[in-house]
Design a protein around this nucleic acid. Sequence first.
DNA 1: AAATGTTACCAAAACGTTTTGGGGAGTTAT
DNA 2: ATAACTCCCCAAAACGTTTTGGTAACATTT
Lengths: 339, 339
Amino acid sequence: MPTIKDLAKFTGLSVGTVSRAFNERYTDISAETRVNVLRAAREIGYSPNKSAQNLASKSLKNIALLSVRDDKGSYIDEILLRIMTGAFSYTSEFGIEMATYMLDGLFRKKKTYDRFCVEHSVSGLLLFGIGLDDPHIKCLVNHPHICVTVDVEADGERVGNVLTDDVTAFDEATMFLIDNNHKNIVLLMGHPGATVTGARWKGAQNALKRNNLPLPVHRILGCDFKTEEAYRKVTAFLKMYGKTEATAFLCMSDSMAVGTIRAIQDCGYNVPDDFSVMGYDGLTVSELTTPKITTTDQNFIQKGYMAVKLLRGLLEDSSEPHKIYVPHSLIVRDSVRRI
Amino acid sequence: MPTIKDLAKFTGLSVGTVSRAFNERYTDISAETRVNVLRAAREIGYSPNKSAQNLASKSLKNIALLSVRDDKGSYIDEILLRIMTGAFSYTSEFGIEMATYMLDGLFRKKKTYDRFCVEHSVSGLLLFGIGLDDPHIKCLVNHPHICVTVDVEADGERVGNVLTDDVTAFDEATMFLIDNNHKNIVLLMGHPGATVTGARWKGAQNALKRNNLPLPVHRILGCDFKTEEAYRKVTAFLKMYGKTEATAFLCMSDSMAVGTIRAIQDCGYNVPDDFSVMGYDGLTVSELTTPKITTTDQNFIQKGYMAVKLLRGLLEDSSEPHKIYVPHSLIVRDSVRRI
DNA sequence: AAATGTTACCAAAACGTTTTGGGGAGTTAT
DNA sequence: ATAACTCCCCAAAACGTTTTGGTAACATTT
């Protein structure tokens, strides 16, 4: 593979001049020479070596998407899939490259995000999948590198966040049930450690309190975002109380809504005639169940898109706004009935 | 961020010795010195710079997963998702790192895979998503770098393939319909350029011919793997022939099976009472429809796992077997009826 | 006692770029 | 005619590693 030296020899120019021919920002090179160099490069099949570039220019703006998951469990789910889709649609639109790394819990124990950046010569980091319990999240605050988190609130001079306004969104979801005359609502909670669980909890409480509706403890089901756990807890609830205690199930995720519907149906009840169910997230599953689930679309694809956009903005000019709320939308389908 | 020089100064050793302390393969360094260096590194927060390493050691074995998609269409689908899951479960198991790049059609026009490797200092490439029409696929044959393709047959000294035995698998799928007394089968074809379409076509033909069953042209529906296209073509077919011409639809993908089922139901027929439907791939959707789809699981997760494994094997010893067929399995569910 | 081997380290070159500090040739202003 | 400026280009240092060739110190063999 030819190097820049070969190209310099081939064109009869110096190495430095050839380098400048490739970097648009330099003006002290004649247009003619530049096109000559580029043509010659194509001719001999030269293209610059990324590692050498990274090494020589400390400030190359290459970006990486980092997804850190717990040791247990699958690395990738539809949410990450959608975020990545959005992110890559941005990079493709603007012709930039982005490496993606999937790291497990082991990583967290050994390395900081900071060090990861140095090792891989990245100056912009996209973080997804980190929880509140991440010990390194604190380091982000005075991180020398720019980073953007998705669905995680993290403050700092050089850190941006792309978020859903979960409090408002879940307030609206709750209101949708209330507006349909549901007064006795069962709330299916997400993972207790997650930021989003707290925010959605707050949204539900706001709506409930505003309407003077109680939420007794036995109507709060901790299901950790999991389908099976929701199935189990809802089945138990139904076995214990039948139709006496509630008319609607409000879930903090679609996956739990799927478990809820299955449980209701397996107990011999009908959705939405006997019980209404609301999901949250707007994933594909919510469209494939019978009945289709009424849910809130978090617009993950746009989140991914905006995250890269924000990252690039921050890389250029760190006075950009640091928090972006992407709009959510209520999708009314068939799992909620007016009573 | 401290460099190796800082660490050398800190420990009172030379740069070269420090470097060797990190690379296990060197023996001419005392065990004591090695642990001292590693401890000191932790103390001052040093970790080696990847770019410098790549530059200095031509033969670093870092690997990348490359997914190249057409300009149009989504970058990521569940298949890629599963392959990535498998791939990352391997890398995590063995504690290695793998970068993932998603590139669009533009890339194909400008660059070769070869050049990509050089630019990014990768010596092992995992290729996914390239079609038969890829102009660069030919270059793979005398590629200086090791690469492994998933779901694409490509020969070469240094290229491995991870595949499903599509001919056999689709033969078996066809036989399942035949064994259930279906004689008039409609075949929904995939993208004409794709290798897999050809292989599955051959499998169907084998089974059909063996049983002296005809497959007239009007029962072959080119649907390009797409749900909507399948919906349209099947609707048209049903409008034209009703129940006279066929009892079963054999789809080359689950996505087309979803469209087929929807079309059948929207035309007022029942699955599987009026028509049977077979899918292929074993994706999540096949489990969420009503009725659940009988399909062939391609085991994409294991494909991803095996691909990285094969890549590593080839990187160590290129005399390994170059083609790996991962086992598929028929999943019998509710969309096929015995008649 | 000299020759040989072994161990544990060092100094310096190399990898392929970018960037800095010049500097010659030509043009314009004094 | 000299000075000042502009336009292009060059030479060399720098980036942070790995790797090569060498050697001082000590142990072992003859």
